[in-house]
Design a protein around this nucleic acid. Structure first.
Lengths: 201, 201
DNA sequence: TTCCTGAATATTCAATAAAATATTTAGCAT
DNA sequence: ATGCTAAATATTTTATTGAATATTCAGGAA
């Protein structure tokens, strides 16, 4: 057994652990799932989990990280499949983000415990998420510049600006305040306004 | 003593109570101020407070309501005094809101306890606040239409859209995440983008 | 009546101890 | 060595209860 195989197996096991943890976190919440339970799900002792992760929070962290990445991949795909105009792509991005947020919250409200934990103790992860979202926006802006739809001078700066305008739809913080329908209407209206502002004069 | 005078005196006393409560809430927080203390501040028994307010939360609620109104008045004034263009007015609105949020948080972090309490238990108050903010935005939009700077068809709808884009600067929810400077830069950029989108083509 | 208070009661907070759980350690099996 | 576990220890939750505080009540003064 060489080093490469070893690492591959370790990674595989880590993923198995993360999947088990995710399932527990979603159903019972972070606080109510024990290391012993996660361990049992993957047929090992609780002690052995520490050969793969620093501690319980670390599991939550990597779990969230994976969730966010998966979500981001889905969103990125949706955007690429979206129609040919940059405006449509931006709209797809916003609506996909919004829906993912709302769906996730609806499906498992326990997930909020995780989100709170992570955004409290691992600001870096949230910043990464923002960064990734801005990167997608930047791509859309560049695309808009190419098609002549937009006229954006500083793409990086503008991607941050656009993201700041869209915060309401990208963060699951205002979930109770508006209905899904209200959220979607607002999202569409904001996109319209932004597109108008980005448009070539 | 007629009914009108009676009510006036009651109102006066209510305000005295609210002022005392506000001072306590700001310095010690909601949880750490007792009804007995508030009562003592205005020279009455704790029991007597209940002739003026339903309960402690009700005091907090009316207190927050007054704070928000005062803040809104200040912001409204700042906007009116702002230069002659609608764009400048919008910028003034956003920066004033942002600064008030950041200042308040910096001055008395205890105030967050109140905000959390109120937004958890009295959604209506928050909605009122949003509504009031939208009203100011609507005025600015109407003004922009008059000066020919903007071309906004549905002012009410657009005021909500603009407000949604500005949520990051109007709610004290992301306080730790960015520095004051970063916030202000973002606010300015978002205003620029929105103004561009609202502009007459 | 109207406005108030002191005392009674109900509720919430805070300190502690007990139990559950996270994490570390020592050592077994391969 | 590597991969694991059981048991030991440290930390965190949970339960309990006494104290503090909110709220209500009965009645006194103007």
């Amino acid at each position: 057994m060489n080093a490469i195989n070893l690492n591959a197996e370790v990674d595989e096991l880590k993923i198995k652990i993360l999947d088990a943890a995710k399932e527990r976190f979603q159903v019972y919440g972070y606080g109510k799932t024990t290391m012993a339970e996660i361990a049992k799900d993957v047929n090992m002792s609780a002690a052995n989990l520490y050969r793969y992760f620093e501690n319980k929070q670390d599991i939550a962290l990597e779990c969230s990280d994976r969730c966010m990445s998966e979500r981001l991949t889905l969103i990125r795909e949706a955007v690429c499949q979206a129609g040919s105009s940059a405006a449509e792509r931006l709209r797809t991005l916003v609506l996909a983000s919004l829906r993912t947020n709302l769906d996730e919250f609806e499906k498992s409200p326990k997930i909020n415990e995780l989100i709170e934990l992570v955004s409290k103790n691992h600001t870096a992860l949230v910043k990464d998420k923002v960064q990734a979202q801005c990167a997608i926006i930047a791509e859309i802006l560049a695309f808009g510049n190419e098609t002549g739809e937009f006229e954006v001078a500083d793409i990086i700066k503008t991607s941050r600006t656009v993201h700041a305008s869209l915060v309401l739809f990208d963060f699951p913080l205002f979930d109770g305040f508006f209905s899904r329908e209200e959220f979607e209407t607002m999202a569409n209206n904001v996109v319209d306004l932004l597109v108008n502002g980005l448009r070539k004069n």
